[in-house]
Design a protein around this nucleic acid. Structure first.
Lengths: 123, 123
DNA sequence: TGCGTATATGAATAGGTGGTCATGCTACCC
DNA sequence: GGGTAGCATGACCACCTATTCATATACGCA
């Protein structure tokens, strides 16, 4: 039961509040820069400077995104000397990232489940 | 092995192309309107009109979002008479949504894993 | 064939957001 | 204590995007 996501009740479309929360949190993964930041942190905690170099962004930009991720409780930062070491907030975030990658690979490539494929707007 | 997400290689921060794909796909869940649309479709396929009423949006707005979701291969639409019945593209999408909700509930509430909680920028 | 319904599409707009530049702040070091 | 490294913050801007309004297209029906 490392996953959850099985005994969940699925009311009609859940309330707008939940939708808002989901949307807000998922938006953290909605930009390449943040995805790469999180991916780097999933590998191992590191400082802002390392992060900036790892993802190829300016320190300021990284700091801004880190603030956003902090407010969403996706990462935590701990001051160490004059540096701040950031890390994923907990294992949930890492799993979320992995699942996102997993689904993207399966959704955007072919699909094991040939749904009727009715072409209603396949461009 | 219905899930995957366990034997995955995790290179440093994966390549920017993957990050872009993940970000683009996750952006489908980055707005309350689309989350609610997907949630409604996960419950059961339905027409654009029903969808619009279910999520409280104008038909046009729903149609625009559906186009976006179609291009991301998250939903499919099948013409039935003069209506178009939309449905999730496959079970992956439903699972992705469930996992998103699951993680949000666990991340944004308390957290089972008391990470050091060092308050680096808790405002 | 003409009319009403259902959906799709295009243009225009308001709001949000990621990035850069400049600067402030804290902690270390000499 | 001055200097500097590391990070955070604010202002500003260019861009993207979600929604609305208006209109076009597709289908069913009398």
């Amino acid at each position: 039961m490392s996953h959850g996501v099985q005994g969940r009740k699925s009311p009609a479309s859940f309330d707008g509040e939940t939708a808002r929360q989901v949307a807000q949190t998922m938006q953290a993964l909605a930009t390449p820069s943040r995805v790469r930041i999180l991916a780097r942190l999933k590998e191992a905690p590191c400082s802002v400077g390392e992060l900036a170099e790892a993802v190829g962004m300016e320190q300021s930009a990284v700091s801004h995104q880190l603030r956003l991720l902090r407010h969403l409780d996706l990462v935590v930062g701990e001051r160490s000397g004059r540096r701040t070491i950031y890390a994923l907030h907990d294992s949930h975030v890492g799993v979320l990232l992995e699942e996102a990658v997993y689904h993207v690979e399966h959704i955007r490539l072919g699909f094991p489940e040939p749904v009727r494929a009715t072409r209603a707007g396949s461009r």
